[in-house]
Amino acid sequence: MKKTSILLFLLLVAAGVSAQKMTVQEGDFKFLKDAKAVNVVFRYDDMKLLKENKTEQQYKEERTAELNAKNAGTGDTWAKKWDGAKESIWEPNFMDLLAKTVTAKKGTVFGQGRKDAPYTLTVDATWLYPGWDAGVMKQPAKVSTLLTFTETGNPSKVLLKIKSENAPGDQWGSNFSNESRIGEGFEKTAKTLGNRIVKEAY
């Protein structure tokens, strides 16, 4: 019995491990040192999902059909929840962690719709893995993004480009919501980004 418990614990730990990578592809953080505000834009145009690299439309259609086949109407309800998750979970989670890691420590304010800000951060969601939770066993979500800082008045002027891969979306206890797990991945992305900004820009 004891060996079984240890095995289950090790499996749970292994399932929760996700190697996040954040690599600077172009530029550096120095321009942010004197920035008072940064505009933030989110994009999902080229987002792929799962190991099969499905388009968002493919994923939604298949998931909706799967859930409706099990219980009529649940798939349609889920599709609405999925569409609303971007503005109700993913983006607020990301913004909240930037506020906690950068604004609270250095005063630079990150906000959506801040066209008055000299710089703009574009968060391109490139790949998502929703993960799963079966109670005893679970697999965290994974979120990959391309984070690009440009001049707001001259979007072609790239100041910093970062590739963030496999930010884990996991929580203590059970979490049966794909959308919520993905939101944790966006939160982890912002936390790692924010900590690097504080460390490397100031």
Rank of each mutant, 00 (worst) to 15 (best):
K2M: 10
K2H: 10
T4P: 00
T4L: 13
I6A: 04
A15R: 00
A19N: 10
M22T: 09
M22R: 03
V24R: 07
E26N: 05
G27I: 10
K30F: 12
K33N: 09
K33F: 05
V41A: 03
M47C: 12
Q58A: 07
Y59V: 04
E62H: 00
R63Q: 10
R63I: 04
T64P: 04
K70C: 00
A72Y: 07
G73C: 10
K80D: 08
K81L: 06
K86H: 07
I89G: 00
E91D: 06
F94I: 11
M95E: 09
L97F: 15
L97W: 15
T103N: 13
K106I: 04
G107D: 07
F110I: 09
G111I: 01
G111K: 14
K115Y: 12
A117F: 11
A117W: 11
T120K: 09
L121E: 07
G131K: 11
A134M: 09
M137E: 03
V143D: 00
L147Q: 08
T152K: 01
K157P: 03
L160S: 05
L160F: 13
L160A: 07
I162K: 02
E165V: 10
G169N: 04
G173S: 08
E179L: 02
F186K: 07
E187V: 01
K188R: 14
A190E: 13
T192A: 11
